[in-house]
Nucleic acid binder design. Sequence first.
DNA 1: CTGAAAGCGCTAACAA
DNA 2: TTGTTAGCGCTTTCAG
Lengths: 290, 290
Amino acid sequence: MGYRPNATARQLRAGRARLIGYVVGEFAGEPWAYLDSPYFARLTGATSAAALRHGYALVMLPAGTLQREWADLPLEAVIVADPVQDDPLVEDLLAARIPVFSDASVAGRTGAHWVDIDTDAAVRESLDHLRAGGARRPALVLPDSTTRFHRETLAAYRAWCARHGTPERVTLVPTPGNGPVVRAVEQALTADPRPDGLFVVAEASPPLVMDAARRLGLAVPADVRVICVSEDESAAHADPPVSTLSLRPADVAEEGMSLLVSALEADGDTPQGVLLTARLRARKSSMHRN
Amino acid sequence: MGYRPNATARQLRAGRARLIGYVVGEFAGEPWAYLDSPYFARLTGATSAAALRHGYALVMLPAGTLQREWADLPLEAVIVADPVQDDPLVEDLLAARIPVFSDASVAGRTGAHWVDIDTDAAVRESLDHLRAGGARRPALVLPDSTTRFHRETLAAYRAWCARHGTPERVTLVPTPGNGPVVRAVEQALTADPRPDGLFVVAEASPPLVMDAARRLGLAVPADVRVICVSEDESAAHADPPVSTLSLRPADVAEEGMSLLVSALEADGDTPQGVLLTARLRARKSSMHRN
DNA sequence: CTGAAAGCGCTAACAA
DNA sequence: TTGTTAGCGCTTTCAG
């Protein structure tokens, strides 16, 4: 017959709603713009998938809001992807004794768990790769953001430059979006002396980065070797194919959810974390032999 | 003091959980791949935003699953974005008496509401625009999918060709992704006689479509005028800037959520729907004067 | 105006 | 085995 048990009543009885909140700390200005980023799109999808597989459903929350604005949702935990520095949301959540899952910036705090990328190793590998391709003066194009990954990327880049006795060439991108990033790339490539390597951390469509170099009359990789931090599949189809550093959103989601679920299930307040290694996909844009 | 009311108990008392499910009917093979599409990314974000604004939270559900797989979620309604033809999920939901919100393919069914794009008008406007730019033999690059929009696009294209006495030139793209679409574009552009207009409905990075034409030695728009159905912001920055037909995901989400909420609140079983007009953004890739 | 009680729909424990 | 009951935490109603 057509009987369907009442899910809410079961949840009340069980004492758990099997619901996990998901917020992105970045892009506070445009609360949902983060889905336009291939990285966050993948991360969000993979997180949903992993949650479902563990028997939890994911509730999408708008970036830049506080716990009190959706306090009437029975969330067992909240995932805060890429929080900004001293994110008030993280504090709010922790104060409300709601388990938080985020990146390494919450490491050590009670009720907080995390997964993150080994930024230092990733930046070092990328810059070493550019150097191996002949780039002696690699420039960095970085979003002007206080995300842990971006802060650490800048620090790692500076350390690398110091180690190699190379002056730093950093162009900050004020806002997300293809337009601003392309302008920053052009700016970086027209500096004097011109960089012979480019590490584009700000998210942009890789074909557009190639277009920018072409417009300036620069050959990639002969004149400038390029690596983009990107999950955008179009990198492989660009002309030339663009080397990418993948932050492995699918694996981050997978590993993170396993950790979160065991923490929830074990009722563990003991903070735990996992560190993953980024993956460099070398393509033609960075491979050059003199 | 630190008292926090139990959300589940309140929901049980209130008899409503203020939770709405969200599934995409397409991409059944890769349940979460839809977020890689700028269209669905926007649609998903905007739907979340609109839901929250109306006091509902959105729960992400994997494409290609059935109601029974997440039956223990207290969903007041489920949004099925772009269902495939005779989608079993829609039937499943309707049978379980869960209100469904989807596209025009569910129009008229009890407990179902919808919002959709006027496909016929959109296709006609696009092809007329290509023709006004001098394209006498426009070709169509279409995903091999049974979504209502894709079915109706094909029908509208055929009707337009018949009306103008032009033979049909249709290239079907077997699977989503930049690679397959770019190959289909190349195939379409190397047909004999070569088309002088291209309506790319399959989602691809617009700069890559320009790259494909360039590789074949074709000038855009002089040799071939191009319109892409795309929400990808990179279209505006491509070389040349690519004309796009926007399916207005943000407005679809907005209008749809208003309708859904009033249906839920009014307890209305009477089917209702809204039809929106797509927006053509003419850029250089389609503007040519002989 | 303050306080007690009923009941939302379920499940787990217990009684028959 | 099958049937009854208590109680999850809240809100609303009703009594004091």
